[in-house]
């Protein structure tokens, strides 16, 4: 279970307050969507969960299955089961996807007291994942994200997610820059990975993605706080009315 309590965070160098007391509980098997206008702090929230060091947590707590995540280094969070799909996946020329994934998976296995996978076993394992997600084989030999289209980069994120089998998946605006076909492919991948013991936090600006990844809960983030929660119908309401009516309603609360 993911428990976020009264989470406050600033941009480390500017001391600019971005998160102002987020409370959120995600149980295994659940998909929670975090929606909000630009500048509401939703991407910051995703990145704080992943441990990005440009943000500094000033108050509150985050635990995953009882373990204090805020005490953990970035890689330790990954070993504990956190995975963030990046809004802008990074290109790393000269490192093959296969090498990268093997290093990541074996680091995680080692940290969890499991034996590292040899190269034969590993290849078998990732071929299964490629087939499961119906992804092209050349994803394995290409350098990490180098020269990938926007859609390919996001598919590669989902592929990594499938290989690392995280407990908590955080999707940071995964739909940005995708056309409808790419969006469907990515959503199909995410749906294939849904399971009773896996949690999803899906951060998005638009409702569109939630037609394909259907959430159990929808939360609206404004001014660094969750101002409204509901089921998937809340997303539809937002689609219809925009964020304006909420901004007026909660103008006082977010100051």
């Amino acid at each position: 279970m993911l428990e976020v309590k009264n989470l406050h965070a600033v941009v480390a160098e500017e001391e600019k307050q971005i998160l102002r007391g987020i409370n959120l509980t995600v149980k295994p098997g659940e998909v929670h969507a975090i929606m909000g206008p630009n500048g509401s702090g939703k991407s910051t929230f995703a990145n704080v969960l992943a441990g990005r060091e440009t943000y500094e947590v000033t108050d509150g707590s985050v635990t995953l299955d009882g373990a204090d995540m805020l005490e953990m280094e970035v890689e330790d969070r990954a070993h504990a089961g956190v995975f963030m799909a990046f809004q802008y996946p990074v290109e790393i020329p000269g490192v093959s996807n296969t090498y990268f994934l093997r290093a990541a998976l074996n680091a995680k296995r080692q940290a969890n007291g499991e034996e590292e996978l040899g190269s034969m076993e590993f290849m078998k394992f990732i071929r299964e994942k490629i087939d499961l997600l119906k992804l092209p084989q050349d994803l394995l030999t290409r350098s990490v994200n180098e020269g990938f289209s926007g859609g390919e980069k996001k598919r590669n994120e989902i592929f990594q997610m499938a290989v690392l089998e995280p407990r908590l998946c955080v999707l940071d605006e995964t739909d940005s820059g995708l056309d409808i076909d790419a969006l469907k492919t990515v959503a199909d991948g995410v749906n294939a990975l849904r399971s009773p013991d896996r949690m999803f936090v899906v951060v998005t600006h638009y409702q569109r993605l939630l037609n394909y990844i259907v959430p159990d809960y929808v939360h609206i983030l404004m001014g660094g706080k969750i101002v409204k929660s509901g089921d998937k119908s809340l997303a539809l309401e937002l689609e219809e009315k925009g964020y304006g009516w909420l901004e007026e309603e909660f103008a006082g609360a977010t100051q």
Binding site: G51, E73, E75, A78, F86, I92, A103, A107, L164
Partner: peptide
């Protein structure tokens, strides 16, 4: 950050 967020340790990420 990208490499570390996938679980690769800092030293190894640097080497990579």
């Amino acid at each position: 950050f990208y490499l570390r967020s996938r679980g690769v340790t800092k030293d190894k990420a640097e080497a990579i």
